[in-house]
Design a protein around this nucleic acid. Sequence first.
DNA 1: CAGGATCCAAAAGGATACTG
DNA 2: CAGTATCCTTTTGGATCCTG
Lengths: 118, 118
Amino acid sequence: MKECAIYQSSHIIGKKWTIEIMLELYKGEKKEKRFNELKRKLGNITPTALSTSLGELEQEGLIEKRIDTTVLPGKSEYFLTECGEEFMQVIWELKKWSAKWKFKDMGCDEALCRGCSM
Amino acid sequence: MKECAIYQSSHIIGKKWTIEIMLELYKGEKKEKRFNELKRKLGNITPTALSTSLGELEQEGLIEKRIDTTVLPGKSEYFLTECGEEFMQVIWELKKWSAKWKFKDMGCDEALCRGCSM
DNA sequence: CAGGATCCAAAAGGATACTG
DNA sequence: CAGTATCCTTTTGGATCCTG
């Protein structure tokens, strides 16, 4: 049972900051986001926590980092990979379930999307 | 963002034992499973861990416990609620994603279902 | 049989300060 | 700007033993 595909991935979604970072990277027109931009948006995440989490997500292949070394100080940019984009399906499914069972089908703007504009 | 439905539920799926217990309860004809039956199937889970996890899942409404007090020692039985059954959709979605991106679409019997007979 | 109590080791999470 | 390094507190997980 432990060799089943699901055990390779279940730890990702439950990890602290994973969902928030993924949602943040998913949002908006501009796909690339900067380190401090994410930090600001995520409220009071410490740089350590953000750095760690971004590193893990990169390891898992969900996001990618691109560093522009032609400028100083070097700009780093993070964005979802295709793998990461498809991972959002899992998040939506969880969200759907949550809205139904935890919020009793309040409706999207009341429950699904309240405050996170999605 | 923190008020969004998804944050009420993301911790559940990532928790240790959640997926394994849910899969175990989902399997087979007989829906009700006993404490020691689960313990056996889950390998070397300690009674403490199993008890804790079952308690949390019950709190979340995913499973239910029924105790038959007419016999001694009292038989306890666990089974998925409707809410729990629907939660499986999230697990399948995660599994699908994992099979595709972590196992490169090996196919169900090779990746999705290897060892867990699902 | 179905757990509860206790104790311990390990890991996660956070605060603060510092650097190329 | 984009992180590291260090330290500390809290949480989690597991082992072992006990009981109605």
